[in-house]
Simulated assay, not measured.
Amino acid sequence: MSMLHLHYDVPGDDFTRAGEASGDVKHKLKRLGYEPDAIRRVAIAMYEGEINMVIHAGGGEATVDIDPDKVDILLQDHGPGIADVSKAMQAGWSTAPDNVRSLGFGAGMGLPNMKKYTDLMEIGSVVGEGTTVHMVVNPGKK
Rank of each mutant, 00 (worst) to 15 (best):
M1L: 13
M1E: 08
M1P: 01
M1R: 14
S2L: 05
S2M: 06
H5N: 14
L6F: 03
L6N: 04
H7P: 02
H7E: 13
H7N: 13
D9F: 03
V10K: 04
V10F: 09
V10N: 07
P11R: 01
G12D: 09
D14S: 03
D14F: 00
F15Q: 00
T16S: 15
A18E: 03
G19R: 03
E20R: 02
A21L: 07
G23S: 10
D24F: 01
D24G: 14
K26R: 15
K26Q: 14
K28I: 15
K30Y: 03
K30R: 09
L32G: 03
G33D: 07
G33C: 01
Y34E: 11
A38Y: 01
A38S: 14
R40M: 08
R40S: 14
R41G: 11
R41L: 10
R41V: 11
R41E: 14
V42P: 06
A43M: 06
A45V: 05
A45Q: 12
M46V: 13
M46T: 12
Y47H: 15
N52F: 06
M53C: 07
V54L: 04
I55P: 03
H56N: 05
G58V: 02
G58I: 04
G58E: 12
G59K: 13
G59M: 10
G59N: 09
G60S: 11
G60Y: 12
A62M: 13
T63H: 05
D65M: 12
I66A: 05
D67P: 08
D69V: 04
D72C: 09
L74P: 00
L74C: 09
Q76E: 15
G81Q: 04
I82K: 03
A83Y: 09
V85G: 02
S86V: 12
A88G: 07
A88W: 05
M89V: 00
M89N: 05
Q90F: 04
Q90V: 15
A91V: 11
A91C: 04
A91H: 14
G92D: 11
W93Y: 15
A96D: 06
A96S: 10
P97N: 12
R101Q: 10
G104F: 06
G104T: 06
A107M: 09
P112A: 04
P112S: 03
N113Q: 08
N113C: 11
Y117N: 06
Y117H: 13
E122P: 02
I123T: 07
V126G: 00
V126F: 05
V127A: 13
G128D: 07
E129H: 10
E129G: 04
G130D: 11
T132L: 07
V133N: 00
H134S: 09
M135T: 01
M135P: 08
V136Y: 08
N138H: 14
K141M: 15
K141W: 04
